[in-house]
Write a protein that binds this DNA or RNA. Structure first.
Lengths: 110, 110
DNA sequence: TATAATACCTTGTATCACAAAGTACCTAAA
DNA sequence: TTTAGGTACTTTGTGATACAAGGTATTATA
């Protein structure tokens, strides 16, 4: 599982979702349902069965950690937090995303 | 195999490549190797084994047609041409792409 | 003590893209 | 004329992403 700039760009084609998760958690810690709500609010439909495995994957890669927190309205929540490694990954993905956007814009001109 | 605006956006998450192919063929007809070269020129590495099945898929969906053309430098080439249906699909994908770009920008603010 | 709501998790499936290998055509050199 | 090399198109097997659907567990309320 490499992590070159080229690999990041390859990952970008699939897995825009992974980029979105890191971007959300870069602003504030959050639990799964809140993440889904925020994604929906910008037009990205995501379901639980997609998000949970993704969060677990990112946690196993050391990009995230989590802590349990009691809720006043139901069962405890798993709040995810971006790690230093996650912030590095996010920086790489920011660059890759910008390159993709620029690349497509270039394609459409000419 | 539906084709709602929502479905287009879902497709966008994977399959940015499909969007790129239609965008290239919207400018001019082209054969596979030329398409690969143009994609490489904007930083998107694509290999034959990815592109050929994709072109066949799009042709089977009626988005493209092709014609054979003799080459002075080797075997004949399959030149792909965007169909009316392909142009419609491209217009939908243009909108979906813009929404995705806007959505991510919104995510990163706030 | 049921019931509903919230939250987390798992399994099976379809699709995308890649790696690797194969087929076919054309040209030029031996 | 046969061989080698380049160009172009195709197929097969694999890994990863996301979805659909269903399941488990906790909490509050009727």
């Amino acid at each position: 599982m490499e992590n070159t700039a080229e690999n990041v760009r390859a990952q970008m084609r699939k897995g825009v979702l992974e980029y979105c998760i890191l971007s959300i958690l870069n602003k504030r810690e959050a639990y799964a349902s809140a993440i889904i709500e925020e994604l929906k609010s910008v037009g990205m439909i995501v379901v639980e069965g997609t998000l949970y495995p993704l969060l677990i994957r990112q946690k196993n890669q050391g990009l995230l950690s989590y802590r349990w927190e009691e809720s006043t309205q139901g069962p405890p929540r798993k709040y995810y937090v971006l790690s230093d490694k996650g912030r590095e990954q996010l920086a790489q993905m920011d660059a890759a995303w910008q390159e993709l956007v620029d690349g497509i814009q270039t394609l459409k001109q000419a």
